[in-house]
């Protein structure tokens, strides 16, 4: 069952079409990834879903009916560009944002304290926001997103600027939310995170949805004749073997190799061993989301942004 459906969303700013007829479905109880490069239209799409921007065309359907005002109270939204009232105190901030969602009273207060303890910020509850470190401000921001226990959680580039430890805490909470049946929409340009966390995804490029589906489906569709390789040594000799190798994509940590025929996979393995390459991982018929992304968006990716994509994925999830 699709709980949330985006139909033909379009937004123009003057003559630029920021989002062009975007349609996708977010299934119940899943983590949905909206993936694209910087400036591809992710944030604009999400803003339209949140009713922050009015779409020029299209609509967002929630369980069969067009979303209205009450949807906002049911969503926790973490925007890419974050901000809090600097002069407000931590606990006061949390309670204020919950109040805007219609949640007041002891219950929320208790939960706010719980979350503060979880993020080790309980002793800072009476501090002003401006006195917190940037990382701690981000934690507070995240708590405001989930404190009112929303059904939907929309996270726009949630990991940007977080250190590995906080990234892990955040990841844990997202997965816990999923276990509790929440629908999570994750927009990111960090493809490795998306691959490891999402069940479904849509790739957006220049305002258009160029690919969508469940990760498993997509992988099995694209993984044919593909080998995911981790190695030590030099594989540049493969370029000479055009009769076997169709394409090589180097992503630094791993390399994707596409062979011409499925039967050639064994030949490739032999070739590598014969040439003294130390193989750490050889995964036949596997493809990373990264490769799918490059394959779909690839022709349009200039070298610079390709570099930034592989550059930024480096942190371990």
């Amino acid at each position: 069952m699709n709980s949330l459906e985006v139909r033909n969303l379009t937004k123009r700013f003057d003559k630029i079409v920021a989002v062009d007829g975007a349609s996708f479905e977010v299934p119940d109880g899943s983590i949905f990834g909206l993936i694209g490069r910087n400036g591809a239209g992710k944030t604009t799409t999400i803003r339209m879903m949140m009713g922050i921007y009015l779409p020029d065309e299209g609509e967002v359907i929630l369980k069969g009916t067009k979303v209205g005002r009450e949807f906002k109270s049911n969503v926790g939204y973490l925007p890419e560009e974050r901000g809090l009232y600097k002069k407000m105190k931590v606990l006061e901030t949390l309670l204020y944002f919950a109040e805007l969602k219609g949640k007041t009273g002891k219950e929320v207060q208790k939960k706010a304290v719980e979350y503060l303890k979880k993020f080790e910020l309980y002793d800072r509850r009476m501090s002003k926001i401006e006195d917190l470190s940037k990382g701690n401000q981000q934690k507070i921001q995240f708590i405001t997103t989930i404190l009112h226990d929303p059904e939907f959680i929309i996270l726009d580039e949630p990991f940007s600027g977080l250190d590995p430890i906080n990234t892990n805490i955040l990841k844990e909470i997202i997965l816990e939310m999923k276990r509790r049946g929440k629908v999570i929409i994750l927009s990111t340009h960090l493809i490795d995170y998306a691959e490891k966390m999402c069940d479904h995804l849509a790739i957006i490029e220049k305002g258009k949805i160029v690919l969508k589906g469940s990760i498993d489906e997509l992988k099995s569709k694209y993984a044919n004749r593909n080998v995911s390789l981790a190695y030590k040594g030099d594989i540049s000799f493969l370029k000479k073997h055009n009769e076997i190798v169709e394409k090589i994509e180097d992503f630094g940590n791993s390399t994707g190799i596409k062979v011409r025929k499925e039967s050639q996979i064994q030949e490739l393995l032999k070739l590598l061993i014969d040439n003294g390459v130390e193989i750490k991982k050889f995964d036949a018929n596997d493809i990373s989301l990264h490769e799918i992304f490059v394959e779909t968006v690839g022709n349009e990716v200039d070298s610079e942004s390709q570099f930034s994509l592989s550059d930024r994925e480096g942190i371990n999830v």
């Binding site: 803003r47 009713g51 922050i52 925007p79 560009e81 600097k86 944002f97």
Partner: peptide
Amino acid sequence: EEKSNKIVEIVLSSVE
């Protein structure tokens, strides 16, 4: 302040 500190987007995710 709300605009330049980007607070407004969060507020607008809750209110019109």
